[in-house]
Simulated scan of single mutants.
Amino acid sequence: MCCTADPAQGAVLQVDHVKPRAKFPELALDINNLQILCEICNIGKLHHSESDWR
């Protein structure tokens, strides 16, 4: 959703928590707090950003 990479291009997709689990544990399983990012974007985001690319 962030960089538009897809598995056909070799991207590994991961589920990302828009609001990080470390700060918002109650939202860990909330479907509205989840988005799909490639592994590189997800690692780059870490828990510092609450960017929502949906």
Score class of each variant (00 low, 15 high):
residue 12 V to W: 09
residue 50 E to G: 09
residue 10 G to C: 08
residue 2 C to L: 14
residue 49 S to W: 00
residue 35 Q to V: 03
residue 4 T to C: 14
residue 25 P to N: 12
residue 30 D to L: 08
residue 24 F to L: 00
residue 53 W to Q: 01
residue 23 K to S: 13
residue 23 K to Q: 15
residue 52 D to Q: 10
residue 29 L to M: 12
residue 41 C to N: 05
residue 38 C to Y: 09
residue 34 L to K: 02
residue 30 D to R: 04
residue 17 H to A: 04
residue 42 N to Q: 08
residue 32 N to I: 04
residue 52 D to M: 05
residue 30 D to I: 01
residue 17 H to L: 06
residue 8 A to R: 10
residue 16 D to A: 01
residue 40 I to Q: 12
residue 32 N to M: 07
residue 10 G to A: 06
residue 12 V to F: 14
residue 48 H to P: 03
residue 16 D to S: 03
residue 21 R to Q: 07
residue 12 V to S: 14
residue 28 A to L: 07
residue 22 A to K: 14
residue 53 W to A: 04
residue 1 M to K: 13
residue 35 Q to P: 01
residue 19 K to S: 02
residue 46 L to T: 10
residue 13 L to N: 04
residue 7 P to T: 11
residue 42 N to L: 05
residue 1 M to H: 13
residue 41 C to W: 08
residue 33 N to W: 00
residue 24 F to W: 08
residue 47 H to M: 12
residue 22 A to W: 11
residue 9 Q to E: 06
residue 30 D to Q: 06
residue 34 L to A: 00
residue 26 E to Y: 03
residue 19 K to L: 12
residue 51 S to G: 07
residue 37 L to A: 00
residue 30 D to E: 13
residue 28 A to H: 04
residue 50 E to D: 10
residue 9 Q to M: 11
residue 51 S to V: 11
residue 52 D to A: 03
residue 43 I to K: 13
residue 27 L to E: 11
residue 17 H to W: 06
residue 49 S to P: 02
residue 19 K to R: 14
residue 14 Q to H: 08
residue 19 K to H: 10
residue 1 M to E: 13
residue 23 K to L: 14
residue 48 H to F: 13
residue 7 P to N: 05
residue 20 P to H: 05
residue 19 K to N: 00
residue 38 C to R: 11
residue 37 L to V: 01
residue 37 L to E: 00
residue 21 R to I: 15
residue 45 K to C: 01
residue 46 L to K: 08
residue 7 P to H: 02
residue 3 C to F: 05
residue 5 A to R: 15
residue 34 L to H: 02
residue 41 C to D: 06
residue 46 L to C: 11
residue 31 I to Y: 12
residue 39 E to M: 04
residue 49 S to Q: 01
residue 17 H to N: 05
residue 38 C to H: 11
residue 48 H to N: 15
residue 7 P to G: 03
residue 26 E to A: 07
residue 18 V to P: 01
residue 23 K to A: 13
residue 38 C to D: 08
residue 48 H to R: 11
residue 50 E to P: 03
residue 4 T to N: 12
residue 14 Q to P: 04
residue 8 A to M: 04
residue 47 H to S: 11
residue 53 W to T: 00
residue 46 L to D: 14
residue 45 K to T: 02
residue 11 A to K: 02
residue 17 H to T: 07
residue 43 I to V: 13
residue 22 A to C: 12
residue 6 D to C: 13
residue 13 L to R: 04
residue 15 V to I: 10
residue 8 A to Q: 07
residue 17 H to R: 06
residue 4 T to S: 14
residue 2 C to I: 08
residue 17 H to E: 10
residue 3 C to H: 06
residue 24 F to E: 03
residue 39 E to I: 02
residue 31 I to G: 02
residue 12 V to D: 07
residue 25 P to R: 10
residue 39 E to W: 09
residue 11 A to W: 08
residue 39 E to F: 09
residue 16 D to I: 04
residue 22 A to M: 07
residue 27 L to N: 09
residue 12 V to R: 14
residue 34 L to C: 00
residue 25 P to S: 13
residue 28 A to M: 08
residue 41 C to Q: 07
residue 52 D to H: 03
residue 27 L to W: 12
residue 5 A to E: 15
residue 29 L to W: 14
residue 47 H to G: 13
residue 43 I to G: 03
residue 11 A to G: 11
residue 29 L to H: 06
residue 21 R to Y: 09
residue 12 V to I: 15
residue 10 G to I: 09
residue 31 I to K: 07
residue 32 N to A: 12
residue 32 N to H: 14
residue 25 P to K: 11
residue 45 K to I: 08
residue 15 V to Y: 00
residue 1 M to F: 11
residue 10 G to M: 06
residue 16 D to Y: 03
residue 9 Q to C: 01
